[in-house]
Amino acid sequence: MSIIDTSSAPTVPARKVEALKPDLLLTQEHHMCPGCGEPLAVRQFLETIEELGVATRTIAVAGIGCYTSFSGSMDVDLVQALHGRAPSVATGVKRMLPDSLVFTLQGDGDMVNEGLQEVLHTAARGEKVTCILLNNGVFGETGGHMTATSVIGQRTKNSLDGRDAEYHGYPILIGDLIAQLQGASYVARGSVHNAGSVARTRKMFKRAFESQLRGEGFTFVEVLTMCPTGWFVPTADGPTYMQETLGEVHIMGELKAEGRVRTTEELHAENVAKQRELDEQIARGGIEK
């Protein structure tokens, strides 16, 4: 067979590039800065909901941050929560409508600073909701301030010389905390800094939503998102900067799946081992297919 099958008409008509938006977005327009990773993450979970065919029983609960402006453009029933309080609001929604798919949309400032207690208790209760964390390690909306996930050395408006562990304390690996709780059934950390990470993150959303729909427990997907504005780096440098800073600390991978808990440290060790194996293969004369 040739690369493009021309034996019959394609089953799905070709769509214009400019029309490429999830059906669950009312407009392609958004209010994010150039280079922002949040729209990429929003697209992935909205398309996952479409793929699962559960749109008409989906309810979103939005926190407060840049992403809040998607509450007007996401074509899903939505409850706006206070900063940090989305998990408890989602709890009330889900308990009254147990057959629905309920997710929260929160940032690191919202979830890990203001609402840390909320998300931990919601996870511990095993509420059948999915909390989505868009983690860029910075308060984007206020203009680039340190959050509880900012990494050591990260320069923000209130850590001008870089986050200093001695003075500012250490970042919280929120996924690790949640994975330890019995009520959590699926915990993963993805990213949107390149095509591969987007594809992996998409699978994480799917697994999380499916686990929620099976009623297994609390589910959590963290997505590292670029924020060149809040990081004070050129737009095009966002993905690289993210990989080299946040990506080195908040390691991508599944922290809890099918009952198995892996720490960020273990994910890191696995990545190092994989890389070493690749390096050795290359040294032997190339990667075997």
């Binding site: 009312l26 327009e29 479409e50 029983r57 309810i59 007007g72 029933d77 939505l78 409850v79």
Partner: peptide
């Protein structure tokens, strides 16, 4: 009230204190 039934219909609802609305509706 929200129940998800209008999600994806172009007429989904929002319960909010912020005075915002869905795109295309007066806010």
């Amino acid at each position: 009230a929200v129940d998800g039934s209008l999600s994806g219909s172009g007429r989904s609802r929002g319960v909010t204190s912020l005075g915002v609305s869905k795109v295309g509706e007066p806010a």
